[in-house]
Nucleic acid binder design. Structure first.
Length: 997
RNA sequence: GCCGGAGUGGCGGAAUUGGUAGACGCGCACGACUCAAAAUCGUGUAUCGCAAGGUGUGAGAGUUCGAUUCUCUCCUCCGGCACCA
């Protein structure tokens, strides 16, 4: 037996595969295509740790299987080398970013090569290569030169918009070019604007929302480096991604992505359907509010403006307390600048005294407040406050003592006493009194004589009485107890629907709970007639809180008595206290009330337009020119790429100006000085792999048509709101403009789990816990590393690295090696005619069965990215092989084929040893024989009363009665069934028998 | 706080249209080989019990002949969002 020298064979085959171009992808091909893509890395200076290749190994195993299954597999790799990480590294190490990137790519490639991936390296892309970013710039120009046609619901060239203006707008032609351009800028999908941005002074650049994280004190810091971030108003380039918000949301449904990534994108897009409603005010200026709960319009008790509301000035100057308000606004802005949105911040606000808003639904005058719990950037920057049905308004109203009005109530139907057909529904407002005697710890109830009812005191509200008055009156009338202390109203009313036999109607009762405490047991005279219907009964606290009573609202009152405060009722329900809208559901009322007040239903999104500019050197130049008059012009396609100038000083200026603004040759030409953000180059790289060398287009139409989209995309879930959203956006744009054939770029997405250090922390230089894959490859071999990383646990789960456990994977490969040295020409019973061979060598029959089970298992598991169980089943097979005397060459080779994706080097070496002349990685994927998977006999469990008491062996197709009979004669089973009457027999085919005695 | 996901031996994990819980691997113990050690091989390894048998998948309840799997309540951990009206 020759030695297993992993270094030797791994180097040998890596060289051979490269020389023979084993992984070269045909383009085009008659074979069916399959595109397996890894998220390409930032080639950071630190190099790879063992966590990085996890995803690459998974996708490589998958790609290798697909290739063996006869697909033309596109499995490329490249580098995303623009952007902050590369540039920070360069600045820290005082070398030019281009040099740093070159060096890092080399390190990176060296590390990758050792692991034995099946990439077609001839297709490598590098975002910093001018031949690549020429096309990034080209796509930018297409976006800049387009607008979103809301009627066609897709992007169109801006020239179509100009034509439209020329036709429909008489004034258009009179405008100067600059004026026209100003208007067009409001439509372009890439546009220039001023806005508050997240400015990071330390990095000297603007950051996108998803590049900012909270530090442990809740302050915003840059994801990279952890530097403080503040707000700053600056000139920026933007991408109008919000135009695509709805399509980005709805198209998620058709994607085979893990649920939580879709969820994150859904949240990020943040769609909400609501209404815009206008409130007139006592000054000559209306307030437009956005609300999702127009059904609560009757419950509005005040209106709130954001301190940064666009018209705040006009309200301010007319307020009687102008100084106070203006001071509040100043403070609020100060707070916003620091952006320390600390958790559970107490709400603050100030009333605009002397100004009233008029509720359009009922003409009611309500106060107007300014408060910074209302965001200027969402909706209309103003809200109608309904403290009874909104948690934030509730909190605010409580603090400033603003009134509450209930307009929505939960509706319950009394199932014991449901409304009856043929009876009229009669609505009544009622009060229900909970009376507590603190001395005896008892509650007041009524025991009804005629109906077997047991309830608390309740009754209708009469005339102009308040709820509390009505409740008190009822208690006195019905029980005589008059010394009552009002404690509180038990939250929003509750609607109950039931049949009232004594009145001959179906009752719709809108009840409000009122809590009283009994001050003394003093009683006044009772109304005799009424009192004859029931007895007064005091029940213990325990009974009151546990026993159901006739009035079904009781659980609500109990719930709301528990805490000192109760939550506002924020769910949908049935409308009350709203005139003609009463008894509608919230859903119906939202539309009807909006319509009634002349508002309109609108859809809003949380997502903002994406900032598309960085004040940094190391990025794609934006291919635009500014002339002296301020007009912007696009570079012509033939002048692309606009190359980054070679400079010696590329550090950030710190003023907010890009380093390029200091380059004379650059500014002289009027070139835009901002560069593109890191996500530009990564938003379309997967398309370039399809045709990486093309000089005439980002990719040839034929190549695009053949490869279409990515079938399997593997990468980290941290890109959920960045790369994965931006790519979808660009792809949809390119689709609208006819440049790509599909509206979505990535059909299936798998997210690999992170590999943590053995101490449970992230691997990082900082903690000194980094494991370098080079070391593992050197000691154990690439095949062992690959098998181990796939065997560790589920692909999508994170696990700590455990060098101790690797040995198991190594032993597995060594066992394969050992078994290989024992194979012989033993003839295998594998053809279908021998599906049920009557072999003397039972051991061998069993092995062949295991082999075919394993083929199926490995096949299915790889398809599902369940690599750990695939390996586990191969271990079972190899353990069995190790024990049998005869192993046929054919069967062993079949096994090598399913092992090949995981351990490509060993499999190839043994494959050639067995006389093959062509790479195993181009051999066809083995098929399993279904007939061999069927067992003749089965061992099944016999349970008595659900407990396993014995095991019997039965023919696979045995009849149920035969199985029962067989089971009953089993010794162990007899012990439990003898002398017992068998009440029930259950047979689960091929699984178990259960006797119930 | 809200929205997701998860909780199984000493450890990583396996098993869910409800059907023998703990596959596979690590570790550990004992044995073989060895002067000895390593490596390797064999046996064992959820837990209580000498055994028969009992208990056991975060806790508690429920449905069922039968629950890691379904329902409800609660606890813990991880991820996302965080005044989005």
């Amino acid at each position: 037996m020759k030695n297993y020298d992993h270094s030797k064979i791994e180097k040998k085959w890596q060289k051979a595969w490269d020389a023979k171009k084993v992984y070269k992808t045909e383009n085009p091909s008659k074979k069916k295509k399959f595109y397996v893509l890894d998220m390409f890395p930032y080639p950071s200076g630190a190099g790879l740790h063992v966590g990085h290749p996890r995803g690459y190994i998974g996708s490589d195993v998958y790609a290798r299987m697909k290739r063996m299954q006869g697909y033309n597999v596109l499995h490329p790799m490249g580098y995303d080398a623009f952007g902050l990480p590369a540039e920070q590294y360069a600045i820290e190490h005082k070398i030019h970013p281009r040099k740093a990137v070159e060096k890092n790519i080399k390190t990176f490639r060296g590390q990758l090569d050792k692991i034995g991936f099946s990439y077609d390296w001839s297709r490598q892309v590098n975002t910093t290569d001018p031949e690549y970013y020429k096309w990034t710039q080209w796509i930018f120009l297409q976006i800049y030169n387009s607008y979103y046609d809301t009627e066609k619901n897709k992007a169109r060239p801006i020239s179509e918009l100009i034509k439209k203006f020329e036709k429909t707008d008489k004034n258009w032609k009179k405008l100067s070019e600059i004026e026209k351009e100003k208007i067009l800028m409001q439509y372009r999908l890439a546009y220039e604007g001023y806005s508050e941005v997240n400015w990071c002074p330390k990095l000297g650049t603007v950051l996108a929302n998803d590049e900012i994280v909270d530090d442990k004190d809740g302050n915003p810091v840059s994801e990279r480096g952890g530097y403080p971030v503040e707000k700053k108003s600056m000139r920026q380039w933007f991408m109008r991604i919000t135009s695509y918000a709805d399509r980005l949301l709805t198209d998620l449904d058709g994607l085979d992505w893990s649920g939580h990534i879709k969820e994150i994108q859904k949240n990020w897009i943040g769609k909400s359907d609501g209404s815009e409603i206008e409130f007139k005010t006592s000054i000559n200026r209306n307030i437009q509010v956005f609300t999702t709960r127009a059904d609560t319009l009757f419950g509005v008790t005040y209106v709130v403006l954001s301190p940064e509301h666009q018209n705040i000035g006009e309200f301010l100057v007319q307020a009687k307390n102008m100084a106070e308000v203006s001071e509040y606004i100043r403070e609020a802005k100060e707070r916003a600048k620091k952006e320390d949105i600390t958790i559970e911040k107490e709400k603050t606000g100030v009333e605009l005294k002397g100004i009233k808003a008029i509720n359009p639904v009922n003409g009611e005058e309500v106060p107007v407040w300014v408060a910074d719990y209302v965001l200027a950037s969402y909706g209309t920057g103003a809200v109608m406050a309904v403290p009874a049905h909104d948690e934030r308004d509730f909190e605010f109203a409580k603090k400033y003592n603003l009134p509450m009005k209930y307009v929505v109530a939960p509706k319950i139907i009394d199932e014991k006493n449901p409304p009856k057909n043929g009876f009229e529904y009669v609505v009544r407002n009622a009060a229900q009194a909970v009376v507590y005697n603190p001395i005896k710890d008892e509650y007041l109830t009524l025991r009804w004589k005629k109906f077997d009812w047991h309830s608390i005191v309740l009754g209708g509200i009469e005339g102009n009485e308040s709820v509390v008055e009505a409740a008190k009156r009822e208690v006195i009338e019905e029980t005589g107890y008059s010394d009552l202390i009002f404690k509180k109203i038990l939250g929003s009313p509750v609607i109950s629907v039931f049949h009232a036999p004594h009145k001959g109607i179906n009752r719709v009762s809108v009840s409000t709970g009122v809590l009283f405490e009994l001050a003394s047991e003093k009683q006044v005279g009772l109304d005799r007639a009424e009192h004859e219907q029931f007895d007064v009964e005091w029940v213990s606290s325990e009974t009151f809180f546990s026993k159901p009573m006739t009035n079904i609202e009781l659980p609500f009152w109990r719930e709301r008595m528990k805490g000192k405060i109760w939550k506002p009722f924020i769910e949908y329900g049935t409308i009350i206290n709203s005139n003609e809208f009463n008894q509608l559901t919230s859903e119906e009322a939202r539309k009807k009330i909006t319509e009634f007040v002349g508002g309109k239903m609108v859809t809003k999104y949380k997502m903002r337009d994406a900032i598309f500019a960085r004040q940094r050197y190391w990025g794609e130049p934006i291919p635009l020119k500014h002339d002296k008059a301020g007009a912007i012009s696009m570079l012509k396609e033939k002048n692309l790429p606009l190359k980054l100038p070679n400079v010696t000083s590329y550090e950030p200026t710190g003023t907010g100006e890009s380093p390029l603004s200091g380059v004379k040759a650059w500014t002289k030409e009027g070139y835009e000085t901002n560069t593109m953000p890191g996500w530009a180059g990564s938003s379309w790289y997967f398309l370039r792999y399809m045709d990486p060398k093309n000089k005439k287009a980002f990719a040839d139409k034929k190549a695009l048509k053949y490869w279409k989209d990515v079938d399997m995309y593997v990468g980290g879930s941290e890109h959920a709101t960045g790369h994965l959203l931006y790519s979808r956006f660009w792809h949809k744009f390119l689709f609208d403009m006819g440049h790509v054939p599909t509206p979505e770029p990535f059909k299936t997405l798998k997210n690999q789990g992170m590999i943590l250090a053995s101490d449970g922390r992230k691997m990082s230089k900082r903690w000194g816990n980094v494991i370098n894959p080079d070391d593992i490859v050197k000691t154990y071999g690439a095949d062992t590393l690959r098998v181990y990383e796939m065997f560790m646990g589920p692909f999508e789960a994170s696990q700590p690295w455990n060098t101790e456990s690797i040995i198991g994977s190594r032993r597995f490969i060594e066992k394969v090696w050992k078994v290989a040295s024992r194979i012989n020409d033993f003839k295998s019973p594998r053809s279908s005619s021998q599906a049920r061979p009557d072999f003397k060598n039972h051991q061998y029959v069993s092995l062949v069965k295991t082999l075919h089970k394993t083929i199926k298992k490995v096949n299915d598991d790889i398809a599902n990215f369940a690599f750990n169980t695939a390996i586990s089943s191969m271990m079972v097979l190899v353990n069995e092989m190790d024990k049998v005397e005869n192993i046929s060459k054919e069967d062993f080779k079949t096994f090598l084929q399913i092992l090949a994706p995981f351990a490509p080097h060993v499999a190839e070496e043994l494959w050639y040893d067995l006389g093959e002349k062509k790479s195993i990685h181009l051999a066809p994927w083995p098929k399993y024989n279904m007939k061999l998977l069927i067992e003749d006999t089965l061992k099944i469990a016999v349970q008595v009363n659900g407990k396993v008491r014995g095991e019997i062996e039965i023919p696979t197709d045995a009849d149920q009665e035969v199985v029962f009979a067989e089971a009953l004669v089993n010794e162990n089973v007899k012990k439990w069934t003898d002398g017992q009457e068998i009440k029930k027999k259950i047979y689960v085919k091929g699984r178990l028998v259960n006797f119930v005695v």
